[in-house]
C-alpha cells in the first residue's frame, strides 16, 4: 500500500509490497464484556512510522494488544502477512512482530543485559540457547537504545527513563519486521523522546520495518509520524498522513481540545498550540473571602 499523501518535504516511503503486513478488518476486541474497540479497520503502512493518538481510555492499548495477539478478537480479523494472526504459531509471530506493552514490570534484580537478552527468546531453541547472533543483536539493541552503559546494573536501580529505554532495547533485540510500542516515550525527557523517534523513523525508513507507536505528546507525533491515527471511544476517528489529519477540527473532535494548528517554518510540520482562555491568563487573582 502506498501512503496516500506523502509530500515532497517528507522522506519518500521505501518501496512497498502490494498488501501491507498488518491489516485490521472490522476488528472488535474487549476484556470479556462489551467490546472496547469496535469495528476498527486499518492498513498499517509498511516501512513507515504510524502513530496512534487518542485521549486516555480511548482503547489504544487495547488495540495494540489485539494487534499483538495478546487479546483475542471478539469479531473481525487481524491479518499478519495476509493470514489471521490468531492462527499463526505464536513463536513465528514473535519473530515477525514485537510488542512493548504499556508499563511493563521487570522481575526484581534482573540486570539490563538479561532483560534485553529476553528479546532473543523467539529466536532460540533447546540446542541454540545462546549464539553469536543473539549476543550481537543484544549488543546492537543496547547500543541503539543507548543503555549499553548500564548493561550490568539491575533494571530496578535505573531511572524511569533509563528503564523505559531498556525495554525498548529488549523489543529491538527481537529483530522483527513489525514493532508495536505502547507509549515508549513516557518518562523520557524531550531530547531522548526526539532521539527515540528519530531512531524509530530511521528503522522504518532505512530498514523498511513497520513501526506503530502510541504517543501522548501531540507535537512529537505530528513531527515524526508518517501516518497518524486518531482514536476516540474505541473507534478510529481520523486517519491519514499528518498534513491531512492534524488539524484544529480533528483535535477538537477527538480530544475536545481547543487549539490552533500552525506550521513549523523549518520542517513544515504542523504544530498545535492549545488556546488558553484569556480569563485564565489575565484575570487578577480573586481575593480570598
Amino acid at each position: 500500500m502506498r501512503l496516500k499523501c506523502s509530500t515532497a518535504q517528507y522522506d519518500e516511503p521505501v518501496e512497498q509490497r502490494d498488501a501491507p503486513r498488518l491489516q485490521l478488518r472490522d476488528a472488535s476486541v474487549g476484556y470479556g464484556g462489551a467490546p472496547i474497540v469496535r469495528n476498527v479497520s486499518l492498513d498499517v503502512p509498511d516501512g513507515a512510522l504510524t502513530v496512534l493518538v487518542g485521549p486516555n481510555g480511548s482503547g489504544k492499548s487495547t488495540l495494540m494488544k489485539a494487534m499483538a495477539r495478546v487479546l483475542r478478537l471478539d469479531a473481525g480479523n487481524i491479518l499478519l502477512d495476509g493470514r489471521p494472526i490468531g492462527q499463526l504459531p505464536t513463536r513465528q509471530v514473535a519473530r515477525r512482530l514485537a510488542l512493548l506493552p504499556q508499563g511493563p514490570v521487570a522481575p526484581e534484580g534482573l540486570r539490563v543485559r538479561e532483560l534485553v537478552a529476553q528479546g532473543r527468546f523467539p529466536h532460540q531453541s533447546l540446542l541454540r540457547q545462546w549464539s553469536r547472533r543473539d549476543a550481537d543483536a543484544v549488543e546492537a539493541a543496547m547500543e541503539a537504545a543507548d543503555v549499553a552503559q548500564f548493561a550490568e546494573r539491575p533494571v530496578s536501580d535505573l531511572s524511569g527513563g533509563q528503564r523505559q529505554r531498556c525495554w525498548i532495547a529488549m523489543v529491538l533485540a527481537q529483530e522483527t519486521g513489525l514493532l508495536l510500542l505502547d507509549e515508549p516515550a513516557t518518562f523520557l525527557d524531550l531530547k531522548v523522546q526526539v532521539d527515540l523517534m528519530q531512531l524509530l523513523r530511521r528503522i522504518a525508513k532505512q530498514e523498511g520495518r513497520t513501526v506503530v507507536v502510541v504517543l501522548h505528546e501531540l507535537n512529537v507525533a505530528a513531527a515524526f509520524a508518517d501516518h497518524l491515527v486518531m482514536m476516540q471511544d474505541g473507534r478510529i476517528r481520523a486517519e491519514g498522513c499528518v498534513d491531512a489529519v492534524f488539524n484544529a477540527a480533528n483535535l477538537a473532535k477527538v480530544f475536545g481540545l481547543d487549539a490552533t494548528v500552525v506550521r513549523d517554518p523549518v520542517s513544515g510540520r504542523p504544530v498545535c498550540v492549545p488556546r488558553v482562555e484569556p480569563a485564565v491568563l489575565h484575570t487578577p487573582r480573586i481575593a480570598a473571602e
Partner: peptide, 23 residues
C-alpha cells in the same frame, strides 16, 4: 530444563511473554 527458557520469559509478565512468542 527444556522449560527453563519459557520460564524465564514467563517471569517478565503475561503481556511481554505473549509478545515474545510464548503460549
Amino acid at each position: 530444563f527444556a522449560a527453563s527458557r519459557p520460564m524465564a520469559a514467563m517471569r517478565m509478565g503475561q503481556d511481554v511473554a505473549v509478545g515474545l512468542g510464548l503460549k
